[in-house]
Nucleic acid binder design. Sequence first.
DNA 1: CGACCAATTGAATGTGTTCAACCCGTGTGG
DNA 2: CCACACGGGTTGAACACATTCAATTGGTCG
Lengths: 230, 230
Amino acid sequence: MPLSAQEIERIHELPLFSGLSPDGLRDLLSVAAVRVHGKRKTLFLQGDPATHFFVVLSGWVKLYRLRPDGAEVVVEIFGAGESFAEGAMHMPEGYPVSGEMVEEGRLLEVPTAAFGERVRQNPDLAISMLASMAVRLKSFVNRIEKAETQTAAQRVADFMLKFSRQDRPEDKGVVVRLPYDKQLIANRLGMKPETLSRALSALRKQGVHVDGARAEIRDLPALKRFTAPG
Amino acid sequence: MPLSAQEIERIHELPLFSGLSPDGLRDLLSVAAVRVHGKRKTLFLQGDPATHFFVVLSGWVKLYRLRPDGAEVVVEIFGAGESFAEGAMHMPEGYPVSGEMVEEGRLLEVPTAAFGERVRQNPDLAISMLASMAVRLKSFVNRIEKAETQTAAQRVADFMLKFSRQDRPEDKGVVVRLPYDKQLIANRLGMKPETLSRALSALRKQGVHVDGARAEIRDLPALKRFTAPG
DNA sequence: CGACCAATTGAATGTGTTCAACCCGTGTGG
DNA sequence: CCACACGGGTTGAACACATTCAATTGGTCG
């Protein structure tokens, strides 16, 4: 199942590929593969040589680390329209994390060798890549700040806000669909599943009502205020 | 006080500049400035346009965020021989953190405009920069993992180990000098000063004896073991 | 129906924070 | 030269938040 024209367009709009001409992109895509992976499929393991980086076309992917004691630390989760592991191509020690499908989905898999070659020959592409990594860097800074200053409930609220596209700004309320199971959300937010469960209960006082994967936020601005410290 | 030959050599050995020829480096340095800053001097504020990036020649610099409630989150601390804020040049929103001198020191200040120009014209330099940002990215992943899985005492032990250069591998013990004041260390490790103080006391059981800024590690391998989970 | 797994809830525990008191070295002004 | 204030650091006690362990619910798949 190759790429649809619409998908190619969306890929071109990714920051990472904005430095490519339409021809350049087509050329790059000719050496890339589109593959479907089932749930729980391992894409790569920490330490593997970084032979590919990825673009999520559909489904969800988690990047995680396994600690010696078996505990899993989820570093990031990516969904449709996001690229990941592109930074690893400049890490001689290989991927710094392991990658696994969370839900069945399609991935664009780009060989790092071919991409690196083009980066070398196309300064605009190099700049795009730098910008893309700068964005990631900044998101890590955000994460560190949040992990260190927010309570569990605040982090959960923050997480839900990220998934709430406010279609009609005149409404203060909105319904959010939690995109993957709660264990994964908990891990991504640096807490235990029990803590997430309790945090969701606690958010009822903030006008958040959760039933399964469906979450209803009654007052978006109020929740946003709850997120901030002080 | 311009750069000494030795300093220029050390700058050239930085990953960030390894993509430059000796002439290229000289050329770049001709547009850079060396400045001395006193303790507590603000270098830039979060949101400021990223006009420069920096190399620490001597002293210490902290990068931090100020939360609305006035709390300060220290994101990173850099010392002699390290570059910082180079990633900000690709962030249209400006520096993602604020920067301040911790101790008096000398900085090499490189204008981003001039550097960006050279990145555009020199693919090797672009690659160096990508590699440099990849290293930073990985260090953030490490930090997230540590923050989420280690106790305060373990993080403190880990911190001291980073500063313990093991001169003679036949010795199991070593003396470490804490490089800056404990409030800053505490903040950098995501804990309160009181907690750091208690953690240092607790480490006595692991053969760590602290007096002021002088810390003695009696059994390096044992402390390393203590750092790991499980 | 029964087994299993995700999710929830309760109770006990643990780790770190908060608030307060105190020590100590340094620097300042009388 | 001494008295005193100040800031960094330490320590104690009470508290808050999250984890752990255990029990229970509810849904899904066999």
